[in-house]
Design a protein around this nucleic acid. Structure first.
Length: 867
RNA sequence: GCCGAAGUGGCGGAACUGGUAGACGCGCUGGACUCAAAAUCCAGUCUGGCUUACACCAGGUGGGGGUUCGAGUCCCCCCUUCGGCACCA
């Protein structure tokens, strides 16, 4: 008795194991390159394999893309859907410092866990393409790309990157004639320069370069951080200080305009686009040179409000501004010096928190080019060296920060823009010019936009300035003081020059360390591997020292999507032919926490590779979606301390992978934040069990009620509606509504005595992308010998989706007063007549005047009456 | 402070270009099966009024106003939540 009952049960664990093994053995999801079928490249952001294993957030995005992939395969597409590991990273290294276990070992172990957990979900990845950023066969190419970047420069005339040789050739041919440089030289002079001089000149143009800049040093982590990363770590309680250090940078700023411009064509979430736009921070304005008494060079400022030039009553330099030293009068050297050291100590964060303005007068004066008046020059830390020119003209009448400063230090405030009678004391918006005329120019009466143009033209003509564009984006700090990262393939030679490793020497392997300890300096632990560090340059015979910094974790993820296309190629990072077939990525799914960092860096590298001719598209990710965060059952963020973490292993053990998949998709829209709910998992599990019972009888055989028979008209219509809706919803990533349609279909099917075989088979196909294990099992039970993964997706007949009887709503003044069942397509006249016949309508219309009647075919009749 | 997204039953959420608000699921209530329970199945479930009942009526998509025959959907103002930026001149 019990045995029989056991057999009829939906035994998900056995079924799921069986099909996962089948897919593995048959290599069901192995992708073949370039056929004449349409292609689609669907990518998940590959995970960092942490020691904690998968959490329920990971499967959400992975399941979504998996469903779409399975669906598209059935629609006849070549689908590229790979998975890999972003495996360099700090946690494994920190663990190594505590235990001396090599990060490689920890990483391998974590990857096994992740792989096992991901495979349990039944995701249809092509595992033959698995990649790992820490694999030398992979990072060889990360280093190769680094060299490409190092050996390139950005030609502003072409607005693109070019090999550095093109610059050398140009310099040899015609010197700096075609370039905009401070100290021009001729071709002959170039040839006469020493090896080091040439090297240093070129270094200023390379897209990867070393710079001594104030960086974000995090003592706790023993490394520097990119500006973009600071917030993340300070939130975790680490302190970050500004410290000048010599670091590798990438010239992402050269691409600011293109990163902004090309984003317009992308199908990305608006908030992500917005974040990127903010981060790039383009602003249009003007550069103006303020003459300084007794000096030939002026003081250059950037302003977005050149129209307020007449209101500039003083100037402010950033404390770090290079002219401060020269301009400060002797009597004030001490005060100014003290202020500068004080400001240098403060981190940028601290500067931001202290809203109270500080600053000191340096004793010098500039001339306002519009009024001809002398105005004092101050330094203050509210002006940042990193933005614009590091100097501003202060217009306290129309800028809140300047106003605050002016009030504190009793500097004159002049109003030069009329904001109308309602305007606040400090009016910062657009208005009409006033108090702005000299013998040469007048802005009085001009609207702000107009005034900006007039003043810009005047400045240009007087050679005092010009319209320019500024960006907030800064160059990308690319080096980290870590062991567990890609070594930078550069050697520093004893004459102070650098040499890049030839491609033939890649990969430059990480040396094996016996002990994983911090170097004790600001260098990475690699500095301790003296055998590795000290080298002799083959070409020059000079002694050299390897670069000990490694690349940031973002490096490997900047191009992994290209390696997936051709993962084992030993000769190139990705074959051009395959790249042209598969790129761009048609759908990219991952967390919104990567909105600026990863997504900006990857776009930057991609554009570089595009300029150098290695990829065929200017953008890598055409359509991007973020999965929403899954909260704990208590609607709060999942965390160990709250004890509300849901473990995927447990859920799968209890309800199966299909139920887990289905629930995560049924919870709500993919992108929304939503709470976990165990009852909800039970709900979808019940649905799957009901599907099982519909197909399988108590003895475990195919339900004998399934017969070769045409469906009734109502059921046939529902079938066609279901095919239509499920397909459309999967394409639109609306899995929750696709599932509810399948539920509706099942509910109706359960009511039938005899089940039409053809429709039920097709239903299995519709269900299969969402619950693939159950799908395969039922498909086999229905007598099919091979996997359904490449079965044709069911077709629907639009004509058969329409109801022949429709319910028409009867309204009086827009309020529902009755309903009517009429044949589809009943004409307006007839509907109107029927409406007026209906008793409840007559009751409401009685004694009133009918003004008009609005009829919407197949929808409603609205009788409009007077009072 | 600025920018962006979103507010719908007890809960997760549906509702195509303005046309029956609450699909589907959870929960809850009642019933069937059972010695009993679990599982399963059937019925009900926005709020209020009235009714034996069917029906009917009023209100209802964060709040207030507007456009419209008709608004969850469009416009204006306000409130709340989430995400981002934050002296960027």
């Amino acid at each position: 008795m019990k045995g029989l009952k056991e057999r009829m049960k939906y035994r998900f664990l056995d079924i799921e194991k069986k099909w996962q093994t089948y897919w593995d053995e048959h290599q069901t999801f192995r992708t073949h390159d370039s056929s004449d079928r349409p292609k689609i490249y669907i990518l998940d952001m590959f995970p960092y394999p942490s020691g904690a294993g998968l959490h329920v957030g990971h499967p959400e995005g992975y399941t979504a893309t998996d469903i779409l992939c399975r669906y598209r395969r059935m629609k006849g597409f070549d689908v590229l859907h790979p998975m890999g590991w972003d495996a360099f990273g700090l946690p494994a290294e920190r663990y190594a410092m505590q235990t001396n276990i090599h990060p490689r070992a920890t990483t391998e172990e974590n990857i096994s866990t992740f792989r096992r957990q991901i495979k349990m979900l039944g995701l249809s990845y092509d595992w033959s393409r698995e990649i790992n950023t820490t694999d030398p066969k992979y990072y060889k190419w990360t280093q190769w790309i680094f060299l490409k970047i190092y050996n390139s420069w950005f030609d502003p005339r072409a607005n693109k990157a070019k090999p550095i040789e093109t610059l050398e050739e140009e310099l040899s041919a015609k010197g700096t004639a075609g370039l905009n440089v401070d100290q021009p030289f001729t071709a002959l002079e170039w040839e006469k320069k020493s090896r080091k001089e040439q090297h240093d000149f070129l270094a200023k143009y390379r897209l990867a370069y070393l710079a001594e800049i104030p960086v974000n040093w995090c003592e706790g982590l023993g490394t520097v951080l990119a500006n973009e990363e600071v917030a993340e770590w300070t939130e975790k309680g680490y302190t970050v200080e500004r410290r000048p250090m010599r670091q590798w940078m990438m010239r992402i700023t050269a691409y600011a305009e293109r990163l902004l411009e090309d984003a317009r064509e992308l199908d990305w979430p608006v908030s992500t686009m917005e974040q990127q736009r903010n981060w790039i921070g383009r602003s249009e304005g003007a550069e103006i040179d303020f003459p300084i008494n007794g000096r030939t060079e002026g003081l250059r400022v950037f302003t977005t409000r050149a129209d307020t030039l007449f209101g500039a009553t003083y100037m402010v330099l950033a404390p770090e501004h290079p002219l401060v030293e020269a301009l400060t009068v002797p009597e004030l050297r001490k005060t100014v010096g003290d202020y500068r050291t004080q400001a240098a100590r403060k981190s940028e964060l601290e500067r931001g928190i202290e809203k109270d303005k500080t600053g000191v007068f340096i004793g010098a004066y500039a001339v306002n080019p519009a009024t001809g008046k002398e105005i004092p020059i101050w330094i203050a830390d509210y002006v940042l060296m990193g933005y614009g020119t590091g100097a501003i003209m202060a217009v306290p009448g129309h800028d809140e920060r300047d106003a605050e400063f002016a009030k504190k230090f009793n500097l004159p405030i002049i109003q030069v823009v009329d904001g109308g009678p309602e305007a606040p004391e400090i009016f910062i918006d657009d208005g009409v010019g006033m108090n702005s005329s000299s013998g040469e120019i007048s802005l009085d009466g001009l609207p702000t936009a107009e005034a900006k143009k007039v003043i810009a033209a005047w400045l240009q003509q007087k050679r005092l300035g010009k319209a320019t564009v500024q960006f907030k984006l800064r160059d990308w700090l690319f080096s980290r003081q870590r062991y567990w990262g890609e070594p930078i393939p550069i050697v520093h030679l004893e004459d102070g020059t650098m040499t890049a490793l030839p491609e033939s020497e890649l990969p430059l392997l990480l040396p094996d360390l016996k002990k994983f300890q911090p170097s004790g300096t600001t260098e990475s632990p690699l500095a301790l591997a003296t055998d590795w560090v000290n080298v002799t340059d083959g070409k020059t015979g000079m002694k050299g020292r390897r670069e000990t910094n490694t690349m940031p974790q973002w490096a490997g993820s900047c191009w992994y999507y290209l390696r997936f296309i051709d993962p084992a190629n030993p000769d190139v990072f990705c074959s051009a032919e395959k790249e042209r077939y598969w790129m761009p990525i048609d759908l990219y799914v991952g967390g919104s926490e990567h909105a600026v960092l990863h997504l900006m860096y990857a776009r930057f590298w991609h554009k570089l590779l595009f300029d150098l001719g290695y990829v065929s598209t200017k953008e890598p990710f055409t359509r991007l979606r973020h999965q929403g965060i899954i909260l704990g059952e208590d609607s709060r963020k999942m965390s160990k301390s709250r004890g509300n973490v849901v473990n995927p292993d447990d859920v799968i053990g209890q309800y199966g992978a299909d139920a887990m998949r289905l629930f995560e998709m049924f919870m709500g829209p993919l992108e929304e934040m939503k709470p976990w709910n165990t009852r909800g998992v039970e709900g979808v599990f019940r649905f799957l069990s009901r599907v099982w019972r519909l197909f399988v009888d108590e003895a475990g055989n195919l339900n004998p009620s399934i017969v070769d028979k045409a469906p009734g008209p109502d059921f046939e219509r529902l079938f066609h509606q279901t095919v239509k809706k499920v397909g459309e919803d999967i394409d639109g990533l609306r899995f929750n509504t696709a599932i509810s349609q399948l539920m509706i279909f099942l509910n109706e099917a359960m009511k039938l005595e005899k089940l039409p075989r053809k429709e039920l088979e097709q239903f299995v196909l519709l269900l299969s992308p969402l619950a693939p294990h159950l799908g395969e099992e039922l498909w086999e039970l229905l007598g099919h010998k091979t996997s359904l993964a490449y079965e044709a997706w069911p077709a629907f007949d639009p004509a058969k989706t329409v109801e022949d009887m429709v319910e028409v709503v009867l309204q009086v003044n827009g309020k529902v007063r009755g309903k009517l069942l009429v044949p589809q397509g009943t004409d307006d006249k007839e509907l109107e007549r029927l409406a007026h016949e209906e008793s409840n309508i007559q009751r409401h219309v009685a004694g009133k005047k009918v003004l008009r009647t609005i009829v919407v075919k197949n929808k409603l009749v609205n009788v409009v009456i007077g009072s």
